[in-house]
Nucleic acid binder design. Structure first.
Lengths: 236, 236
DNA sequence: GCCTCGAATATGTATAGACATAATGCCGAG
DNA sequence: CTCGGCATTATGTCTATACATATTCGAGGC
């Protein structure tokens, strides 16, 4: 019932991932596979093109197709959505708003100017993600109200701004920057950990076609949280 | 000179990424695009299939194709290769080996048993990545010598084991786990930072077919290093 | 009003053939 | 022996056509 090009792809993929075909190994040329599966070349081609797209093989004209030497530097990172992740585990999630403020962007703060022109309205939100009443992560967010004016009216005393934004505001590009920081006094107090504890910081910025929508920094205690990036069969 | 299907793809992608076609917008059906570009349906189909694969659009039979609502949780993570990254910047890279040891896997250490059976040979390497003579990151590595026997003979007093492994040992699957840790005494001394400093820890495990090859933990001072994950046009 | 079934529609898969393009390797000229 | 150019080969793109499949919409029966 599964399409033939997908079966061809899966069988070759299995040979590669099992190690039976090592990097550098030459894959049967399209005419051979065509004969082997009794199908048209387009079908074989589709399977091989998909494998090439996924980076598992390299194709060279006149020479043939070869198992690729995998590269470390482009892996798929899972960024869990806190709320759905927590709820999926059967725990209770809530968001506690600590600060809310609408004010113009300050002309001397570079971070705010990346988001809005000086004087344009900026929504500032600080809050705490919690699991079963325990602090999970601290979040500081700036929102460009020009890009998401409806957001000014939303009540975030319980709903997470990230969740609301994902559902209501379209974005086209996003960047996450991951680093380690020591918890400062404010974060430490909110997360109920000693000041100076090593924490994972995720800085996320989102755009909609050139226009900046929001900037957020989320800080998690180091032992309570990690991020995973994979290359391999689970990739798809 | 660029293939037509790629041009079609690029033009639709541009409309989506510019925000001109918002999420939920219905894309012209294949027959319309076919007429618009004066080509066969297979060509249009190839362009749209690629966009669907990349997650930019969603295709539904009978209904049509629609701009997808982007999901946060699968972004592409750049994991720089330290050595080439540093050299590309024009700085001097070197690796200093701090410890080297070959011994059997200890039966009570879970981490070692994931790599080898108890009693099988294990290569243990500790070392320091340096830029212009300054410490950049501390690395602790376990290597399964069954999987990479040639490695026992290599001199790592200057060459980084990661670089050697990437070039000489084929792998099929890898996982990176990113977390924050406080520098312990040994790491702090090696990196010349105060003990307890917040650091970014990258735990990497690689496989070949089901067989584990190596486990490595790299620790970087928090301010000196970060990782970036993106979704968007730079994705390809 | 509601439910079922069939027609229309858009995508999914596949074929057979054609020409384009790139790279390898061989062969002959110098 | 070396170098340039040409034939060969494998992939890349595209066409025109066909049938399969999933989903929606509407018509008709209850």
């Amino acid at each position: 019932m599964i399409p033939l090009h997908q079966r061809i792809r899966a069988e070759i993929e299995a040979k590669i991932l099992s190690g039976e075909w090592q990097p550098g190994h030459r894959i049967p040329v399209e005419h051979e596979l065509m004969a082997q599966y009794g199908c048209a070349r387009m079908t074989v081609n589709k399977a091989l093109s998909a494998l090439a797209e996924a980076g598992l093989i390299v194709r060279r004209k006149r020479a043939g197709s070869f198992v690729a030497r995998p590269q470390l530097h482009a892996m798929v990172l899972d960024i869990p959505d806190l709320q759905s992740e927590v709820i999926a585990r059967g725990d209770a999630y809530d968001f506690r708003l600590l600060r809310r403020q609408v004010r113009p962007g300050r002309p001397h703060v570079a971070e705010e100017l990346e988001l809005v022109l000086a004087g344009e309205p900026l929504l500032v939100l600080d809050g705490l993600h919690r699991v079963n009443g325990q602090p999970l992560g601290f979040e500081t967010r700036l929102v460009n109200l020009e890009a998401a004016p409806e957001m000014e009216a939303v009540d975030f005393s319980a709903l997470s701004p990230g969740t609301w934004l994902l559902q209501h505001v379209a974005w086209t590009e996003a960047e996450n920057r991951i680093s380690a920081v020591a918890a400062d006094a404010r974060v430490a107090q909110a997360l109920e950990i000693p000041a100076g504890t090593a924490c994972l910081a995720v800085d996320r910025r989102t755009w909609r076609g050139g226009e900046r929508i929001t900037t957020v920094r989320q800080v998690f205690p180091g032992e309570a949280y990690d991020l995973v990036a994979r290359f391999g069969p689970s990739q798809r």
